[in-house]
Design a protein around this nucleic acid. Structure first.
Ligand code: MN
Ligand code: MN
Ligand code: ZN
Ligand code: ZN
Lengths: 139, 139
DNA sequence: TAATCAATTAATAATTTTTTTCATTATATC
DNA sequence: GATATAATGAAAAAAATTATTAATTGATTA
């Protein structure tokens, strides 16, 4: 249960934390801003203060439960960390997000880091474009 | 001259715009926030209001004179667009930024976009790590 | 060169996003 | 269940960015 997930990383299993974690696990959208999460929880009976949403998301990030991104608009976007690193393809028209993992790219990044003497800790690749659906609709 | 660069893209050659463009061209740091630019210009006689810095940078971005990034802290970072696309390696200790261009990665991105039916418009790859200098210093 | 006039600026206010503070409340342990 | 402590919500504050507006500037024209 989510209670265990929280305890495992040293966080008390409070209602707000459980709600947020459950939302991240079950929401339609996988990538959400703090505001998105706040609004989604407002719909429920046990809504959570916005400050708490921010606080909890940062804690979750530190604990490795979520990953934070900055897509092109610059705001923080969070997604559940399910231990499977991946990169993102984003449609600039409709906002669709596609996740992918590509071995050629993953390997090449290590090669590049090595080449410049860097000890690589992390990376993110965002590919922006227009999805097939949005290509059809004439602008 | 910078005056021409501005006129070429349909912008009046005003003093603030010239100062900002010149700074981006000649500053030590290649990647700067609006605040960085604002502070750097405060040192000079012809300083520029912060709101103007933001406004001008956005105009420059639209005009293709600069490129905007969001490194991991999420704030907007700008660099002169010299028409040579590249990606970034960033040291999380000292903030050093290394620019690189890798053909394997560039090609593979097109392949991936194609695979998912996306018409690719742009991309950015940020590799985070610890630079060789920072590896030496014991933490 | 001076007059004109739209475009631009500085200053300020306003917004937006995120963080902090602190009195109150909930959780884990006994 | 009582207790100690950690977490929350509400409000304020901070940080980042954008909008408003009166005054100034730059480009054009006389
Ligand atoms: Mn994802
Ligand atoms: Mn660069
Ligand atoms: Zn789309
Ligand atoms: Zn370094």
């Amino acid at each position: 249960m989510e209670t265990q997930d929280l305890k495992k990383v040293g966080l008390k299993a409070t209602l707000p934390r459980l709600r947020i974690l459950q939302l991240l696990e079950h929401s339609q959208q996988r990538h959400m801003t703090a505001e998105d999460i706040y609004k989604a929880l407002l719909e429920t009976r046990d809504d959570v203060g916005l400050a708490t949403v921010y606080r909890v998301l940062t804690q979750f990030e530190t604990a490795g439960l979520v990953v934070r991104h900055h897509f092109e608009n610059g705001l923080s976007v969070f997604e559940l960390n399910e231990g499977r690193h991946h990169d993102h393809l984003l449609c600039i028209k409709c906002g669709q997000v596609v996740e992918f993992l590509d071995n050629v790219i993953e390997k090449q990044q290590c090669t590049i880091a090595q080449e410049y003497g860097f000890d690589i800790t992390d990376h993110c690749l965002y590919i922006y474009g227009i999805c097939s659906n949005c290509q059809i609709k004439k602008s």
